[in-house]
Nucleic acid binder design. Sequence first.
DNA 1: TCAAGTTAAATTGTCGACAAACGACAGTTT
DNA 2: AAACTGTCGTTTGTCGACAATTTAACTTGA
Lengths: 245, 245
Amino acid sequence: MASLPDMTSKPPPLFPRLARDALSQRIAQALTEAIVSGRLKPGDRVSESAIAREMGTSRAPVREAGRLLESAGLLVSKANRGFFVRTITADDLDSIYELRLCIEREAAARLVRVGGVAGVVPDLHLQLDEMTGRSADGQVIHQIAADLQFHRLIVKNSGNSRFLAVFDTLASEIQASTALIDRVFDDPHKIARNHLLIIDALETGDEGEARAAMDYHIGVAREAVVNHFRVLEAGHPAPPPRKVP
Amino acid sequence: MASLPDMTSKPPPLFPRLARDALSQRIAQALTEAIVSGRLKPGDRVSESAIAREMGTSRAPVREAGRLLESAGLLVSKANRGFFVRTITADDLDSIYELRLCIEREAAARLVRVGGVAGVVPDLHLQLDEMTGRSADGQVIHQIAADLQFHRLIVKNSGNSRFLAVFDTLASEIQASTALIDRVFDDPHKIARNHLLIIDALETGDEGEARAAMDYHIGVAREAVVNHFRVLEAGHPAPPPRKVP
DNA sequence: TCAAGTTAAATTGTCGACAAACGACAGTTT
DNA sequence: AAACTGTCGTTTGTCGACAATTTAACTTGA
């Protein structure tokens, strides 16, 4: 369905009508890219005027982009001080993973309940290939992105839009925080095998199985990531904020 | 515990830091009040210029307030069209309550786990009094607010800051949607009794008991509210948007 | 009468400018 | 020497104005 050409509206949406408002969004995207890639580090100041100067726009759209990323959890704003890249502690990450666990556990169960498993399994396999492919060329960031995308597919197809909204927020925070990590935790093929277990659990058609698989999978990731950050914090007790354009 | 004076931090926050940025926030608060009180109805347009004219400010802070409420889920923005009061469907509410269930179930269990029950029970009883008091004078809106506040206390003291962040978003959406309701679902004293059951469960010190109590309590509310909205939707298939200053 | 095309009004997106607020540094006092 | 106070430069919060877009109102034609 939804594949028939729509005769009622204009013929070709050839060029995706780029709304004027897109300016804020493009700025937001550029900032996001800078954060998840690690060019902007936690605690760094994000100056409205500096960004505006660099990008050749006024401060207004930069401000909007900042607010956008603030609600996405990538930036924080101090009154009369401006925006700063959010500093994420190990405790924060633990809270994030605990919430993520609640969401994804239910999402997996819900996906089974509404009978949407068969529809997503092919996409899940595709995403898995992407994941192992990315890890081959040492692109840790892209590998993590593909990993999150795998989980996102499950959440999205669970049918609860709020689950997806929360997941997206958490995912961007996780992606941003893992920008500091330069090594993979596990052998890529082992990770792929773990994800296969999730698919298997989904295909049993048992809600309890699906929940349990998610519980285990995310629990493992949680422990690994949080521990990694705890030792990082032990080494860098208070990283001094850098001034970045 | 948590009752000893904290010697490590500054003594008293004697004067509460009043930031200049408060302007946007005051506008946001005024808009929120208008929405939850029902003066602004779902689908209504919220014009930047009109609001700015009325409040005697420029459009910039109004815009910020709009973005703030957008991330809070009270408004939606269409490109080049401005802000509109979010229309919430029965399905939306069902999704919201399902998410709320996930959060609060874990929050209750977590509260028990970290041993914070004794610290909040007195506050919970105070909030319960507030709730029954409000319902006496027919202030349904305030009663619902007090109800949400009760639940918020539990979430807040659970110790996971993300739980609270999500809950606050959901709470404001619930509060806004229930602005359309003009009658109480249940006898106030029955509601109070139901909340007492939650307190009892928390005091058993058993995580499973706490979870189960929340499951039941929120499940009942979910069914009542969602059903109420389904019949509302049957009557008002597509309420036409009103133009409001 | 209704439909489509055209014009006018209103509203948003963006811009540059101004004043208040903050952080830093220096000077003064105890 | 330490702490407080005053000044200075930088950055944000806010403002009014302009350009682009949408909405409506109006005209025209079948």
